[in-house]
Design a protein around this nucleic acid. Structure first.
Lengths: 174, 174
DNA sequence: GCGACAACTAGACTAATTCTAATGTGATAT
DNA sequence: ATATCACATTAGAATTAGTCTAGTTGTCGC
């Protein structure tokens, strides 16, 4: 989707196409890394026009309300965003927390007795496991534990059982 | 799962069964509302023993690491938690944001060319639409817009297009 | 009883997000 | 060209969510 399409989609949603909004939309459409608001702010400000933090948050909220952007359902403290282009599922890495796009395919609907009186709109799949990069080095003693360390060296103590949560901030830098 | 099972699962995970941990586990196992840390803190302190905010966060982190609790993949500012009992999917309401448990069933795996070199562990489905309660009053002009109001009455302006995000805090009170 | 270690705690602190009040911008009417 | 209006931006303050610190407490093995 090019610049004209961004402009049309913004104005079609009742939003002015300001340089700040355009930049956010263009950034989100330009990659699939599901960035946080801080990452979007930083990327948008690397180029002009200058955009403030409040404006970035305000615009993300407006774009989500307009249906042009969505917040990704993922764990972690900071919200992550995705342009609403082609429908897709997500893959969330157990280890590093990266969210990657996966091709959409329809999955079976739940049984009526399970669905009850709810109105179903969409079945979105979250695949979990190890991303290609983390799977490659799964033998190494890498950081499994996403969560902040406890005081007095308490972190990492309880490592039996379940799947380690991904590192909140330790994403691949490239 | 009764008290003895909670104690066994904690100790089996290398965690001491303290009154505070027990209370958090018991609370999470006792309902399916996927509460936030603040809700857990409030609920746990309604009964003795007194539990501090830092302890609640520390224990939630420990329990997630131990695989006894998990953070729910959902949008919104505060993390939500779920006891790891029976596997289940989730239904997230477009309107009110409530997260409800849905019976687990296996869904088809992605095609190998789509999966690539990732290692798949689990396919979790997020159903979206209207919960039973919101579907019942879908005709009314209810609050669709989850997000905080803009200044000077700017909120709610862009309402064409996409699915409105659920209210971050406006969940059903009962 | 003592020591070691796990856990708890209150309050300080950081990160993420929102709010406020003022200002800026663009479209429209005159 | 100017005024007005509605929308948008802004800097900094404020709030919310979560973490850290340093000290204290509790538990367990010896």
């Amino acid at each position: 989707m090019d610049g004209e399409a961004i402009k049309k989609s913004l104005e079609g949603s009742g939003l002015r196409c300001t340089p700040q909004r355009y930049a956010v939309m263009a950034f989100l459409m330009g990659q699939t890394s599901h960035p946080t608001a801080a990452e979007i702010l930083q990327a948008v400000n690397r180029a002009d026009p200058r955009c403030s933090r409040a404006t970035t948050y305000n615009n993300l909220r407006d774009l989500v309300q307009a249906g042009l952007v969505r917040e990704v359902a993922a764990e972690g403290r900071a919200a992550r965003f995705d342009a609403k282009g082609v429908r897709h599922h997500h893959f969330i890495c157990d280890r590093c927390g990266n969210v990657e796009d996966m091709k959409w395919y329809d999955v079976p609907r739940p049984a009526p007795n399970s669905l009850g009186k709810r109105t179903l709109r969409q079945c979105e799949v979250i695949f979990r496991g190890l991303c290609a990069r983390c799977a490659r080095r799964s033998g190494s003693r890498a950081v499994w534990h996403a969560l902040p360390a406890r005081a007095h060296g308490q972190d990492g103590r309880a490592t039996t059982g379940g799947t380690p949560a991904p590192q909140k901030t330790a994403r691949h830098s490239d």
